[in-house]
Amino acid sequence: MSLLFDSVGVQEILALSALLFSIGLYGLFTRRGIIAILMCVELMLNAVNLNLIGFDRLYVHDGSGQVMALFSIAVAAAEIAVGLALTIRLFRLRFTTNADEADTIREFKDFRN
């Protein structure tokens, strides 16, 4: 019955957060598309948010951790908006969204832009 009524401990929360962060890290290393990489970054940011909320729930109790998680969510939203806009821009210039094909600063010679 302890599985039903006990509240969850901090170690389970931290372990889940570390696992999510590692999965996101694996995706970050192995994906080639920029959009997929951005999704992996979002997953890692969410793992950190889970940490903040867990510590706030179990130790701090005054809501500062949740406020910090709110700020983190806002920054992540700004990040993904700008990142996707850059992706669309890159697709217009190079006709690709693979991160490893965007490897030059020089102008692409077939495009005036």
Binding site: A18, L19, F21, S22, I23, L25, Y26, L28, F29, T30, R31, R32, G33, A36, N98
Partner: peptide, 20 residues
Amino acid sequence: NPTQSLIKRFVGAGTAALFF
């Protein structure tokens, strides 16, 4: 959804597992 080559995927999985 292209991925890297198999060897790079192994390295990535190893790094992520090490981190975990």
